[in-house]
Design a protein around this nucleic acid. Structure first.
Length: 570
DNA sequence: AGCTGGAGCGC
DNA sequence: TCTACACAAGGCGCTCCAGCT
């Protein structure tokens, strides 16, 4: 089917303090009338920009304000006050009639806020936010403790929220717009001017008092509005960099759910749709929807069943190669290997393996996802066209994410298909497999130094990488003999490793790449200096093959830090 | 000294 | 046809720290 051309607006706005709340002071809409949801293009396109500014209740506009941005003919629509501004906003929205609204933190804040301001001024046309004419506003957070009314009001349009999408797709410390710009806007992009990209990457944060100050002169006001315009482009750049829209389309195609919900809600609902379709197709009655039996049942803190196994680490500094093996997609594989399903397995504790030979619906669906991904990967190998390659890559990612989220949803009490006995059975088999692998590897006269859930680390007692890989291949071959489709693979080899505790280690791999896991230096609750110095010291230790020499260098470095700190230079 | 609860990681 | 209700939401394992008895 031909993909439709859609209209997208990127929305950004600024507010200014007013009594106990904030008043809407300005907004920008960047409009693109040729947007394609599946496009993997990295350079955003737009047709025009529209900016409007109001004279806030507590402010005056600069005496020489002429409503112009200067330079490139960008006009600013100047309004008499907030209500006027809101009406202009609705008028524009009506004219543009966007299919997609893009912005940062729109779902949990932005849209709700705008709706709230419309309510304050009793703005009549509020339902123009969406595509259904409505009389009564949906109830808002202040009334019922929820912040989804703004989204609800945008019915008929997709809301693409860079914060929500980034939280799902990329691991970061903070998801505020400034951090997203730093980390998710590329250094360079052919087709975009470097200085513009640089400006987008380095966002200027406006605190409420800075916004007030910006109204002091035409120049500073123009700078404020320019930043607001840039925020629109920033969101476009971030969105295309994390590819949240094409990925959402893929996931929605895979699961058969609703696109707007892929963009706004959690993963359990997508899984539920996939399974409901699967049950229906097989003409099989799905299990009754899971309902929490008691309040404690769902809300009680703490684990409801046992999870993965963590092997006791043999602590220490290793300067031989440590071989790293792990099972490919352990939990999805276990579901297939043992035919674990609602239709095959008794819901009981302790759980027991199914006796039936008939393939369950859950393993069948996972198998389909895995096989489809294999097909896509095959295509990727032979594809030369960059656009098509990007599209295929998104597709395989969607398939992988969907397969991997199945187990999580089995254990999730709010899921339609919550089945904790099944989740418990999956993890029980996982523990059994890891333990058996450890015992088996030790029987090969090899030393297992650590392992977590699906991985195992073996001391190779060798400093020769090709020898180590040979050993790895041997272990892999032997372990894989035990299973029908479960598969262990070589993940790499650590040239040196400092193993401190469960889930805490530092290492350098065969290619010189550093890995720091769980240590204080990767935790944000430690000061920057402690993290940096810890890192420096670990590098000294790991890169220095001679332990004594490493320790000497560390002492030297710490002396230096102590002296510098004493002089208050740090 | 020992507990509990949470934050923030790893998988 | 109208009103009230509630809409959020992958899992567990392992330190480590603060706060308490």
């Amino acid at each position: 089917m031909h993909e439709p051309q859609l209209t997208m607006v990127s929305l950004s706005f600024k507010t200014i303090p007013l009594k106990k709340t904030n008043e809407l002071a300005a907004f920008t809409l960047v409009v693109n009338k040729n947007f394609r949801l599946s496009s993997t293009k990295k350079v955003p396109e737009h047709d025009y920009i529209m900016t409007a500014l109001s004279k806030p209740a507590t402010m005056t506009l600069p005496y020489d304000w002429n409503g112009e941005m200067g330079g490139n003919n960008e006009k600013v629509e100047s309004c008499l006050g907030e209500k006027h501004l809101l009406n202009i906003f609705l008028k524009e929205l009506r004219q543009i009639d966007p299919d997609i609204i893009l912005g940062h933190d729109l779902l949990d804040f932005g849209l709700e806020y705008i709706l709230q301001r419309m309510k304050v001024h009793s703005v009549n046309g509020w339902s123009r936010l969406g595509r259904i004419k409505r009389k009564d506003m949906p109830r808002m957070a202040a009334q019922i403790g929820l912040a989804r009314a703004g989204h609800d009001a945008c019915n008929g349009r997709l809301v693409a929220d860079t914060k929500t999408s980034a939280m799902e797709l990329v691991k970061m410390r903070d998801y505020n717009l400034t951090s997203l710009c730093e980390e998710q806007i590329p250094e360079q992009l052919s087709g975009l001017k470097p200085h513009f990209l640089y400006a987008c990457k380095n966002r200027k944060e406006y605190l409420p008092e800075h916004i007030v100050e910006a109204f002091g002169s035409s120049n500073t006001l123009r700078m404020l509005l320019q930043e607001n315009i840039n925020d629109c482009f920033r969101n476009m750049l971030i969105s295309s960099n994390i590819q949240s829209l094409p990925l959402a389309v893929q996931i929605t195609n895979i699961c058969g759910n609703i696109l707007s919900r892929t963009l706004s809600r959690g993963r359990a609902e997508r899984n539920a749709y996939l399974l409901l379709h699967a049950f229906h197709k097989k003409d099989h009655l799905p299990p009754p929807p899971y309902k929490k039996k008691t309040v404690e049942d769902g809300d009680k803190k703490g684990p409801k069943f046992a999870g993965g196994m963590v092997l006791e680490p043999k602590k220490g500094l290793y300067t031989n190669y440590i071989l790293l093996l792990d099972f490919n997609s352990l939990y999805p594989s276990i579901i297939q290997e043992y035919n674990i399903c609602f239709t095959t397995t008794a819901m009981q504790a302790p759980p027991d393996l199914p006796k039936t030979m008939e393939e369950g619906i859950l393993p069948f669906e996972i198998k389909k996802l895995v096989n489809r991904r294999k097909e896509v990967k095959k295509l990727i190998k032979n594809e030369k066209n960059a656009d098509e390659l990007a599209r295929l890559n998104i597709r395989q990612l969607g398939l992988k994410l969907t397969a991997n989220s199945m187990y999580g949803c089995l254990g999730f009490t709010a899921s339609r298909f919550c089945a904790q006995p099944l989740a418990a059975l999956v993890t029980a088999k996982g523990r059994e497999i890891l333990e058996a692998t450890k015992v088996f590897v030790e029987k090969m006269n090899l030393e297992v130094v650590y392992g977590d859930t699906d991985s195992i680390m073996i001391n190779s007692n060798s400093t020769n990488i090709s020898e180590v890989m040979k050993l790895g291949n041997l272990v892999k071959k032997e372990v894989n003999k035990h299973y029908r489709l479960l598969e262990i693979d070589i993940d790499g080899a650590y040239k040196s490793m400092l193993l401190l505790k469960k889930k805490k280690y530092a290492a350098i791999d065969q290619n010189g790449k550093e890995e720091f896991k769980g240590l204080d230096i990767v935790r944000r609750d430690w000061s920057e200096i402690a993290r940096n110095e810890g890192r420096t010291i670990l590098k000294l230790l790991l890169h220095e093959q001679d332990e004594e020499e490493g320790v000497r260098k560390i002492h030297e470095h710490l002396e230096m830090i102590g002296t510098e700190a004493g002089k208050q230079r740090i």
